[in-house]
């Protein structure tokens, strides 16, 4: 699913944009503990959904080459988070949807988890 369409189905606001809103999102993962996210590392992790709103969510995305971070349940990232994401060229979205629903919506549109 291309990023632009992910934004639509997630009813998301774009907090930090990136030039390539047409990038294809094939694999996503959702977790609040960062080591659980990193345990999930595979060849292509394009999107991370999390309720953890702090700079470490962006750092984790950076280490894993994740291109898009989605903050769920309407949580608003602070300026430190946004600034780091801008530096790293990571797209940041905020969605009012809770974690389960946000993941479910993406999954039903063909975005997979690791291992299908």
């Amino acid at each position: 699913m291309i990023l632009k369409d992910c934004i639509k189905v997630l009813e998301a606001q774009v907090a930090v944009s990136v030039p390539d809103l047409e990038m294809d999102i094939q694999v996503a993962c959702g977790a609040d503990l960062m080591s659980d996210v990193m345990a999930f590392a595979c060849a292509s992790n394009e999107m991370l959904l999390t309720g953890l709103v702090n700079p470490q969510a962006i750092r984790t995305a950076e280490m894993m080459d994740v291109k898009v971070v989605v903050f769920v349940r309407g949580k608003q990232p602070g300026e430190a988070v946004l600034e780091l994401a801008r530096q790293m060229g990571i797209c940041v979205l905020t969605t009012p949807l809770p974690m389960f629903t946000a993941c479910g919506v993406l999954y039903s549109h063909g975005v997979l988890g690791k291992g299908g």
Binding site: L33, M34, A57
Partner: peptide, 18 residues
């Protein structure tokens, strides 16, 4: 630390794996 997103107890196993 848990509130900051740590404490899954997965850090060292992740290091081992990578």
């Amino acid at each position: 630390a848990r509130e900051m997103g740590f404490g899954a107890g997965m850090g060292l196993p992740n290091i081992k794996k990578q």
